[in-house]
Amino acid sequence: MRTLSRLGIDIRVGVGPTITVAATASGRIPDPGGVLAVNPDQVTDWLGPLPVEALHGIGPRQSAALRDYDVHCVGLLAAVDPATTRRI
């Protein structure tokens, strides 16, 4: 909040066991100047229900292709065989 009030810069910090989890967490903070930490034992439960487009690195074209195959949340994406995901 200090950075926002002093410099007008909105900083959102995600902390997680991997870069992808941390980056996804930083994008899920609704208020400016927030921090969201995801513990390693919470990753599966936290990521599972998120929509596929919320996962850091998944763009609009990839999420549209995944949704065409009824893969609409990260938990379903995790259950798909990696070779199948690459083909999609």
Score class of each variant (00 low, 15 high):
residue 1 M to D: 14
residue 1 M to Q: 12
residue 3 T to L: 15
residue 6 R to C: 09
residue 7 L to N: 12
residue 8 G to I: 15
residue 10 D to S: 15
residue 11 I to K: 00
residue 11 I to D: 02
residue 11 I to A: 11
residue 12 R to Y: 13
residue 12 R to L: 10
residue 14 G to F: 09
residue 15 V to G: 00
residue 16 G to P: 06
residue 17 P to A: 14
residue 17 P to L: 05
residue 18 T to Q: 03
residue 21 V to W: 00
residue 22 A to R: 05
residue 22 A to P: 10
residue 23 A to G: 10
residue 23 A to E: 14
residue 25 A to G: 01
residue 26 S to L: 12
residue 26 S to C: 14
residue 26 S to I: 04
residue 27 G to D: 12
residue 28 R to H: 05
residue 29 I to E: 02
residue 30 P to C: 10
residue 32 P to Y: 04
residue 33 G to P: 03
residue 36 L to F: 05
residue 36 L to I: 06
residue 37 A to Q: 13
residue 39 N to Y: 04
residue 40 P to W: 03
residue 40 P to Q: 12
residue 42 Q to M: 03
residue 44 T to D: 13
residue 45 D to R: 00
residue 45 D to A: 08
residue 46 W to P: 08
residue 46 W to E: 00
residue 49 P to G: 00
residue 50 L to C: 01
residue 51 P to Y: 01
residue 52 V to K: 02
residue 52 V to P: 11
residue 52 V to T: 10
residue 55 L to S: 02
residue 56 H to R: 08
residue 56 H to F: 13
residue 59 G to S: 04
residue 59 G to H: 07
residue 60 P to S: 03
residue 60 P to A: 03
residue 61 R to G: 13
residue 63 S to M: 13
residue 65 A to Y: 07
residue 66 L to T: 02
residue 66 L to H: 09
residue 68 D to H: 07
residue 72 H to C: 11
residue 73 C to W: 02
residue 74 V to S: 11
residue 74 V to E: 06
residue 74 V to R: 00
residue 75 G to Y: 01
residue 76 L to N: 06
residue 78 A to I: 01
residue 79 A to M: 04
residue 81 D to E: 15
residue 81 D to A: 10
residue 84 T to Q: 14
residue 87 R to E: 09
